[in-house]
Design a protein around this nucleic acid. Structure first.
Lengths: 151, 151
DNA sequence: TGACATATTCGGCATATTCCGAATATAATG
DNA sequence: CATTATATTCGGAATATGCCGAATATGTCA
């Protein structure tokens, strides 16, 4: 992606940012993800810094964060120390993280069943736990099916 | 729920908080939700304030926020101005919100397909959009089935 | 090994978020 | 309508978050 990014590309990046931030992704990392999604090839931190108008250090921190989320991957440029970053195909990552939260929440609700001060509360918490576990399972199934349909 | 809450109840509330905050729920509101989940009956803002150790105004703001999320509902106490709050059964609320984000993200990815600078990028964005829409549909289906199984 | 290129860390600053308590608004009743 | 009870708003303070740029760490090559 060249120096002069089109308005459409800029808009895309800002929209991706707007959607990822509520998922708990810090703004600079979200913008980087949006930008990397549009890059046909891995890009350097210098280029990221320039294209997104952020400091080199912020680019580094954002890239490493995306890497920890497995949303981006580091590539090396042989013969230099330069790091290049590109998106991974692991776009399940965010869904998996949400599933883990769902599961933990369901577990907590089941823990609540055991301490509930009334039958009504107990029933409510149990039902909620059931609901969230059902949703989690449905997502796991869907991801399995998706993987298979792609193989 | 009486003045002297048990350690287990306290722990439950703090655990629910810990799990809801990453979903973007402010700490006080998350704690209130955890507390309300354990209440067999609607409770007043005074009681909330006292039990959670927060100011009356914070309790009010938190309760109204949960209400806007449809996680809690306001009840009136006839003959007084007092507001009582209790959790709703609308625990689908958070899942629906995530689904809307998923859908919007997929739409944005499809918009990206149209401006992509290369075939590779285009294919990638399209596949991601497909994936997220598949997940969203799976969740919608699961919620529909759940509703039916409860009727 | 030293020099250079490059990434990362860290302290500081600006801004955002969270909560408190006083001020203000609103609901209920006689 | 006035009074009282109660909820809500708002300004301010404390704390958290996000980012920058200088300092530091690390990788590559001759």
């Amino acid at each position: 992606m060249s120096k002069g990014r089109s308005g459409n590309e800029r808009r895309f990046v800002e929209e991706v940012t707007r959607l990822l931030v509520p998922w708990g992704v810090p703004p600079a990392a979200a913008r980087l993800y949006g930008y990397l999604l549009l890059c046909p090839r891995p890009v350097s931190l210098d280029q990221i810094s320039e294209e997104l108008g952020i400091s080199k250090s912020s680019a580094s921190v954002a890239a490493k964060l995306l890497e920890s989320y497995t949303l981006a991957r580091r590539h090396r440029e042989p013969g230099t120390k330069r790091a290049l970053y590109a998106v991974t195909e692991d776009y399940e990552s965010m869904i998996r993280q949400q599933n883990r939260l769902l599961e933990a929440f369901a577990e907590q609700l089941n823990a609540g069943v055991r301490i509930a001060a009334s039958k009504g509360v107990s029933a409510r918490l149990g039902e909620m736990a059931d609901f969230y576990l059902t949703l989690r399972s449905a997502m796991e199934d869907a991801m399995r099916r998706w993987k298979r349909s792609r193989a």
